[in-house]
């Protein structure tokens, strides 16, 4: 059935990129991992709830929880979990359940926004470093080394100390913190992809660097980017919560979970539930991202799964 004409006329399109197949493969393998699929749907549901309740509140002024998250009710303060207040109330009598529901958008928002911002800077850096190599690679990687020299939350702290504490600044700080991870991983994958024979074939066909990068390298490094991003969201959420807990992030009365933990700190003796539930909420969300990300990573690199 083969047509000889087609065989002789080799065009760039005929040189198949393995990327598409890889992505399909990834999805197929991922679907076999039941906990990871559950984690994925759990995240989707949380995201939907967070967006819907926020939209209803901001655009229509409708509050879906029995109490408004910011309603102060001093008579009912320090109430433990009851039928009326599922997760109890805090030191100002605010409904912790409502605050957790309405705080979800901040946690998820910071997580997604910071990782997307980090990827937007880190991925191009990694590709350029890996693809061009040489001096450019050297300079980029040294910058990355500098960013990596600030361990963990410290870089974010330093940045917040310049910009001042706020939700937006925390997001920026966490985004910068995730740049080196993206740059390193993408550089590695780019180097590996560059070595593939089909890239040589495409170059031999006269494709420009720009075209090779966008049409051929990028799709190939997409899987590790997605895996990395998912696991980074988990870290980003923890870091952001930590900053808010330190008072460097979301400012009162925003129902951000880390800030709520900070509120609960002073009442551990008599009203432990104030600190309990926001922490459980962070744990649950981060757990979901980690399970989801682990599943993606195992699907991407079965060697790591045992």
């Amino acid at each position: 059935m083969k047509q000889p004409a087609e065989q002789t006329a080799v065009t760039e399109e005929k040189v198949q990129s393995p990327a598409l197949k890889n992505m399909k493969d990834l999805v197929k393998k991922f679907k076999r991992n039941k906990p990871a699929v559950v984690g994925f749907y759990f995240i989707v549901i949380l995201l939907l709830i967070a967006i819907i309740v926020t939209v209803l509140d901001r655009m229509f002024g409708v509050i879906v929880t029995p109490h408004h998250p910011n309603d102060i009710n001093l008579i009912d303060r320090f109430t433990g979990p009851t039928a009326e207040y599922w997760f109890g109330t805090d030191h100002m009598g605010r409904d912790i359940f409502a605050r957790i529901i309405y705080g979800m958008i901040y946690t998820l928002g910071i997580g997604f926004a910071s990782v997307i911002m980090g990827a937007l800077v880190g991925v191009p850096l990694g590709i350029v470093a890996g693809y061009y190599g040489g001096r450019i690679d050297n300079i980029i990687m040294r910058i990355v080394d500098v960013l990596l020299a600030f361990p963990g939350i410290l870089l974010a702290l330093a940045i917040v100390s310049i910009l001042g504490g706020s939700l937006v600044n925390v997001t920026i700080a966490v985004a910068i913190y995730s740049i080196p991870g993206f740059a390193r991983i993408v550089r590695g994958s780019t180097l590996a992809t560059k070595k593939l024979e089909y890239i040589d074939a495409i170059r031999a066909l006269g494709a420009s660097d720009f075209r090779i990068i966008f049409r051929h390298i990028l799709p190939n490094v997409l899987s590790p980017i997605i895996v990395n991003a998912t696991l980074y969201i988990a870290t980003a959420i923890l870091t952001a919560a930590g900053l808010s807990f330190l008072g460097m992030g979301a400012q009162p009365p925003l129902p951000e979970w880390g800030a709520m933990l900070n509120d609960g700190r002073s009442f551990l003796r008599d009203a432990g539930h104030i600190a309990l539930f926001p922490g459980l909420a962070i744990l649950t969300v981060v757990l979901a991202f980690n399970i989801f990300g682990d599943g993606l990573r195992d699907a991407l690199d079965p060697k790591l799964k045992n």
């Binding site: 807990f245 309990l276 922490g279």
Partner: peptide
């Protein structure tokens, strides 16, 4: 291990403090 990794450590600290100390 997965839980340990997903837990905000400052929250773990608060919980330990609440139960084992207070």
């Amino acid at each position: 291990a997965l839980f340990g990794l997903s837990m905000p450590n400052f929250w773990l600290g608060l919980m330990l403090m609440q139960w084992f100390a207070i």
